[in-house]
Design a protein around this nucleic acid. Structure first.
Lengths: 313, 313
DNA sequence: GCAATCCTTGCTCATGTGAGCATGATAGTT
DNA sequence: AACTATCATGCTCACATGAGCAAGGATTGC
């Protein structure tokens, strides 16, 4: 971006730039039309870019913030990164928007023979609401119901089950039991075992991310945890959870609750080729970073402000 | 501009488009980086343009409306067309802006060995005020002073004369005489004759355009004209004047006043290779179109609203 | 006046790119 | 299951383009 050229030169450059970029003519055609040499045309086009007369505006027709998406992808080595350009109003609007975009993303990523794995969570509820059809036939619930309210926890699977041709593999159980033995008992149940057997076949997983510090997690609220549990886990540096996998800032996985959880294990999760997280909002930034650091995800759907903070950190 | 692609595809396209257009990488480089074939990259770039993810924005760093300039140029077969993007506020602000841009244009167009010809007029006064230096050595006044006020009519030459290294060839006379004999007498004056002798050497002319219908012309006001003159000329369909050349809507030149005028003749004017008109504002549209139709100009500086009306007509 | 310098211009040749085609996959239909 | 239409993919070959260079012209300094 140097000195602006004189007005006539600007007009000439603009003419050539329009012919080349907008009308798609070749430099040689333009040269013939204008009587210039093709080299001259090329240099004027260079000048058009340098002087800022042509600018390349790269923007999404929908509300995807492309620049942030690309940077996020490269920064955290993701295969799929989608940043939704929305103001961080309320948590609810963020979740709605992320849910809708995650639904779009699924429609794009999924193939017929994929097997989809889902966790519960409010963003995923929003996603389920936006889904009108699903290309794949099997949907596997990856974790028991996290929050205190069974009703909303089951909504994801309930909605997905209503779609044409979908075979659901639900988990009618809470995410956490109060002791290992109870969990073992639940896992032995035939219907739950059936679902667990699907974990290894899942090819695409979509999961919510819970934040323990600051607190924004349905798992944290789970009634099977007592205060001692929560304190102990926090003391071990846990800041985030995905499915029932607990993660610290440095990306280490804490296995404290493994034996008590009704969910896909860390190992099983990592075996899934495509693992997309859907989370956003200011309370989730630290948790998302932790989960990304742990390399638990291959994709992320988030909002623009969160993306910026992830990139800044 | 078809269906927007899915979010991930958008991100991929955005990435590729950024690499190609903004960072200037080749398709082959991008193909190697991303693992795609160069054809795939090419098709994604096509899609980027089609879907509107990349847009080519062509805009002036100064306030030149490039699109209109180009269209004006092509529509009227001009070599130089500059449309200044200003709201049509008062006549004065339009004249100021046109003057400043015309000065820029001169700085660009003029070479050392050019000989500049000027008429008088308010837009040209504004131009003279904006001129800080002039690359050429000889400036020739092409027409006597048009308006009733000698003072302002001479301002253009006065200002230009003050610039470094400029040799002025002024005409200290009114544009029109009351009869042919008086005009003949004036033309015989040695100093005026000297200036007239320069006409054939002038290479670049800048002229104001006067409008007779609607009325916005200093020439029309000239005291050497009586009401009968004015009526007769209007009856012959004259709508515009440049220097002392009268033009009708259809672009015909009316020679009614030739013998009485102290100015470059139509023939002499047409012999000048570069002839730039500077005029704008709603009252001048019809006059400008007439002068353009007469092919009296090779260039035009005007405002955006006037340009739009010229193109619309 | 002359040389040194810079800038502009258009060239060559290696490289990048587009049009059109053949191939293989996919989806819908009989 | 076979057939057809459609689409995506990657090829060839002709064409468009970029990097670097050499010639000409202008500018500057002595």
């Amino acid at each position: 971006m140097t000195e602006p050229p004189g007005p006539m030169r600007q007009v000439q450059i603009a003419h050539i730039a329009t012919e080349y970029y907008v009308h798609g003519k070749t430099r040689i055609e333009i040269a013939e039309q204008t009587g210039l040499s093709r080299f001259k045309v090329g240099r004027l086009l260079d000048e058009a870019v340098e002087s800022g007369i042509v600018r390349f505006e790269i923007s999404s027709p929908s509300n995807v913030s492309l620049d942030l998406s690309v940077r996020l992808r490269e920064r955290f080595g993701l295969d799929h990164a989608v940043v939704v350009a929305i103001p961080t109003d309320s948590e609810v609007t963020v979740q709605e928007a992320l849910g809708a975009t995650t639904a779009d993303l699924l429609g794009e990523v999924l193939a017929d023979d994929d097997i989809l794995g889902l966790t519960s969570g409010r963003t995923l509820n929003a996603m389920a609401r936006s889904l009108t059809s699903l290309r794949c036939h099997n949907v596997v619930q990856l974790a028991g119901v996290a929050g205190p309210i069974q009703q909303s926890g089951l909504e994801v699977m309930r909605r997905v089950s209503m779609l044409d041709g979908v075979r659901p593999w639900p988990i009618y159980a809470s995410l956490l039991m109060s002791d290992a033995q109870a969990a073992e008992g639940v896992r032995r149940q035939p219907d739950i075992r059936q679902t667990f057997d699907q974990f290894s076949r899942v090819t695409v997983a979509v999961g919510a991310i819970g934040s323990w510090v600051p607190r924004n997690s349905l798992m944290y609220e789970n009634r099977a945890l007592n205060d001692a549990d929560r304190r102990r886990i926090l003391d071990r540096g846990v800041v985030a959870e995905i499915a029932a996998t607990l993660v610290t800032d440095s990306g280490e996985v804490v296995h404290d609750l493994d034996s008590r959880s009704i969910a896909v294990s860390e190992k099983q999760l990592r075996a899934i080729p495509t693992r997309i997280g859907a989370a956003g909002g200011p309370t989730k930034v630290r948790a998302i970073r932790a989960v990304l650091t742990a390399k638990l995800l291959t994709g992320l759907v988030t909002d623009s402000e969160t993306a910026q903070q992830l990139l800044a950190g």
